[in-house]
Amino acid sequence: TTFVALYDYESRTETDLSFKKGERLQIVNNTEGDWWLAHSLSTGQTGYIPSNYVAPS
């Protein structure tokens, strides 16, 4: 499932994924509650993102 970032997010830990508003993200795993494992289609990096910062594209 592809989502789009609603806001900028700066990672707080090394497992988080930083992203910019408008960036497209492929969700890898969304069974972890409020933090989803995502892959950035812009940077190619993978990490955890706050689910309330993204919406379906």
Rank of each mutant, 00 (worst) to 15 (best):
S40Q: 15
T46C: 09
I49F: 02
P56Q: 03
D8I: 00
T15M: 04
T13D: 06
W36I: 12
G44W: 02
L37R: 07
T31V: 15
A38R: 00
N29A: 13
N30V: 05
A55S: 15
T46I: 08
E14C: 12
S18L: 00
Y7I: 15
S18Q: 05
W36F: 11
S18V: 02
A5H: 00
L41K: 08
K20C: 08
L37T: 05
S51N: 10
A5Q: 00
T46K: 13
Y9K: 08
E23F: 00
V54S: 02
V28W: 03
H39V: 11
Y9L: 02
L41H: 15
V4N: 03
R12P: 04
Y53M: 10
P50K: 10
S42N: 14
R24H: 13
S51Y: 06
W36R: 05
S42T: 05
W36T: 08
G22L: 02
F3Q: 01
H39C: 12
A5N: 01
T46L: 03
N52F: 14
V4D: 07
D8Y: 03
F19V: 03
P56Y: 06
R12G: 10
L6R: 07
S51E: 15
L6A: 08
L17G: 03
P50A: 04
T13G: 11
S42K: 12
D8F: 01
Q26N: 10
W36L: 09
E10D: 03
Y53I: 07
R12E: 10
Q45P: 01
Y7V: 09
K20F: 13
Y53Q: 04
N52R: 14
Y9V: 03
I27M: 11
L25A: 00
L41Q: 09
N29D: 15
S42H: 02
N52S: 14
T15K: 14
E14Q: 11
T2I: 15
R12K: 14
L41T: 11
V28D: 03
P50C: 06
E14G: 08
Y53E: 00
T31I: 05
G47F: 00
L25S: 01
Y7H: 06
R12L: 07
N30R: 12
N30G: 10
E10F: 12
A38I: 02
Y7R: 12
I27E: 01
F3H: 06
W36E: 01
K20E: 09
D34H: 03
R12T: 14
N52I: 06
P56H: 14
I49V: 09
Y9M: 02
D16M: 05
A5C: 10
Q45V: 05
R12C: 05
F19M: 06
A38S: 03
W36M: 07
L6D: 06
L6F: 03
Q26M: 04
Y7N: 13
L17V: 07
N30E: 09
H39E: 11
V4M: 12
E23D: 15
S51M: 11
G33D: 11
W36Y: 10
T1E: 10
D16C: 12
F19E: 03
F3P: 01
L25E: 01
A5Y: 00
T43G: 04
Y7M: 12
W35D: 06
N30W: 09
T31G: 10
T2W: 08
V4H: 03
F3I: 01
S40P: 02
W35L: 13
L6M: 12
Q45L: 11
L6C: 04
Y7L: 14
F3M: 14
P56E: 04
R24P: 15
Q26K: 15
W35K: 11
E10S: 12
R24V: 14
Y48Q: 08
Y53N: 15
Q26C: 13
E10C: 11
V28M: 09
D8G: 06
D34N: 09
L41N: 13
V28Y: 09
I49N: 01
E14M: 05
T31S: 15
P50D: 04
W36G: 00
R12M: 11
E14H: 11
I27A: 10
K21P: 01
R24C: 09
N52E: 12
Y9G: 01
S40H: 10
P56D: 03
S42C: 14
T43K: 02
L37D: 01
A38C: 03
N52H: 12
T46N: 15
T13H: 04
Y7E: 08
K20T: 09
T2Y: 07
N52T: 13
L6P: 04
